[in-house]
Nucleic acid binder design. Structure first.
Lengths: 340, 340
DNA sequence: CTGAAAGCGCTTACAG
DNA sequence: CTGAAAGCGCTTACAG
């Protein structure tokens, strides 16, 4: 951990000025082949690598981008994977932070990230409104997964209305009329949209949504609470005078809790009860039964968010994309498809 | 995104020198109460926040720490969670990077992180030897999960020998004598140690390990390959003249593949075949059967790694810890425990 | 094609 | 208790 060589050291060895070294480092190509060669040799000889703090200070921007998500559940982790892969192309690295579904914490993280001079932030907001002026961040922001009411930002999301519509329709086609819908927190756009798709599908079958069959998984603090939320909701709904014959559960953790409850009630899927979950995972294939799932293109969403950020920075263009959700049909709700 | 206020702006408003502002910012407490008050008011009024690039340049160290793991599987994600939580206390943020099990890529990432002046790196190495001089990184390194042969670095790991010993013993107690062991890549310390624990347990029961029952999950590139590795290994072993009556599968992805193969072969767990997996997850509770698992304290490992890094930086002390692994007994291999 | 010099926004001895 | 000044290692007009 001896002192690192600087531009000056390289310049001295290569016998040029520091400006020239900087130019070849940045491929400004204002140097002759011979000079470039000499500089590169000096760099290699000294094991030089640029001090990014100095560069960031001068340019007002680092090679870091910030990622602020509610938590590191598998969905957001897959988004992180996509982001990391795409960032290679732009020579960015990602600072990952979790807001724990708290918008106070989220805003604090954005401040922290701004102070690091990140060149952009990818944000899955904790709530559907931003409580602070849009330019409280010195870095451009791209939204991922969840929309904001009061800000016009680029966003890469999934088409939750359509995805939810397809899933509900699938359950309908397989003879279910009373479908329990288990949603996450009411304050986020994905929840609102998944509820919408469900209601639309019901309507298309001339069924009026029964509010008793629509429930939120409760408090949103941590893995265990969400699993419990899914669990309790199923228990409660099955105690209704006229319980659902199927469930559509709109996220991964809620789903685990829901399945747990169904198993405890000794109900068999799909014989006694139909089931469609959300967010695919290799596990779903080996579970018994293999679950029919609404699958999100999380990796792709991550990649696109990075691209949208780059676009925003270079052209100012506000890219928005709503990616299709895929219904992966396995064996938890019968197999009569929408198109049959 | 207007120009951000600097120390100078704050100093002017508070009517003090920039040194004083810097002092109150850093709680150097060389200022009077009155001055501190004035400065803080000015900071709030201007919405000032420190430019961390400038600070990093001057101090030769940022508030970032780097995390380099092979991939973002649930185990490493849980480690990331622990790291993020502990980093709060030190006012650090984490730059997350994935080496994809390539040590070339890993070393490149370490260089990149060093250039960012990270104040430390937490590394789960791709291979068990470091191909470069130990001080090729300008930042202190602490290892997590996997050991290195040729470097004396702080390390937070799990006691893989013991964990594997307990699992194998459990299978033995439940009457299994031919136990298939499915390992990850041979070139990493965790694999070596898990194999060791298995052999030790067998020896304690006067059974000589049969090399045909010890297999590596094959190439280690990505989720799908590992699942396939687990799958193929089971298929191959079950075709042996004298196949195993139980499997011990030493990671999460390998396990998914293995279970898939067992189900395809229409073998029932635990009736036809005993099974112990690795890395717990809520899913394991609702699967059929619920799996007996060797569970790693990943979150805690993350926290301890950050603490070890802090210790290394402040006192030079090389902390090492080998955390106990827990055998969570469910229903995939009978329930006669080691202590019965 | 190359170099001298200013300046990005901080921290930190040092002087008073 | 407070301030003036140097300097961290870069990038970037600008001059030649």
């Amino acid at each position: 951990m001896k002192k690192k060589p600087t531009l000056y050291d390289v310049a001295k060895v290569a016998n040029v000025s520091i400006a020239t070294v900087s130019n070849v480092l940045n491929h400004k190509s204002e140097a002759s082949e011979k000079t470039i060669q000499r500089v590169n040799e000096a760099i290699k000889k000294l094991g030089y690598s640029r001090n990014e703090s100095a560069r960031s200070l001068k340019k007002g921007e680092s090679k870091l981008i910030g990622l602020v998500v509610p938590d590191n559940n598998p969905f957001f982790t897959e988004i992180l994977n996509g982001i990391q892969e795409e960032c290679e192309l732009y020579d960015w690295q990602v600072v990952a932070a979790a807001s724990e579904e708290s918008s106070a914490r989220q805003n604090q993280l954005i401040k922290l990230l701004s102070a690091q001079q990140v060149s952009g932030i990818i944000l899955a907001p904790a709530t559907d409104t931003l409580e602070i002026p849009i330019d409280f961040s010195s870095a451009p922001i791209v939204l991922i997964d969840r929309e904001l009411h009061n800000a016009e930002l680029p966003i890469i999301k999934a088409d939750n209305v359509e995805g939810s519509y397809k899933a509900t329709k699938m359950l309908l086609r397989n003879g279910h009329k009373r479908i329990g819908l288990i949603l996450a927190s009411p304050g986020i756009s994905t929840t609102v949209q998944r509820k919408q798709g469900y209601i639309d599908a019901l309507k298309s079958a001339q069924i009026k949504a029964d509010e008793k069959l629509i429930r939120y998984g409760g408090d949103y603090t941590g893995t265990k609470a969400q699993i419990d939320g899914g669990y309790q909701t199923v228990i409660n709904m099955m105690n209704l005078p006229s319980p659902p014959t199927a469930f559509f559960v709109t996220n991964h953790l809620l789903m685990i809790g829901a399945v747990k409850a169904i198993k405890e009630l000794r109900l068999s899927i799909p014989r006694d009860i139909g089931f469609i979950g959300f967010d695919d995972h290799p596990w779903q294939e080996i579970s018994d039964p293999p679950f029919t799932i609404v699958s999100q293109p999380a990796f792709e969403m991550g990649r696109l968010a990075v691209r949208a950020l780059n676009k925003l920075k270079s052209t100012g263009e506000i890219v928005t994309a709503s990616l299709p959700l895929q219904l992966i049909i396995r064996k938890s709700c019968g197999t009569k498809n929408v198109n049959d």
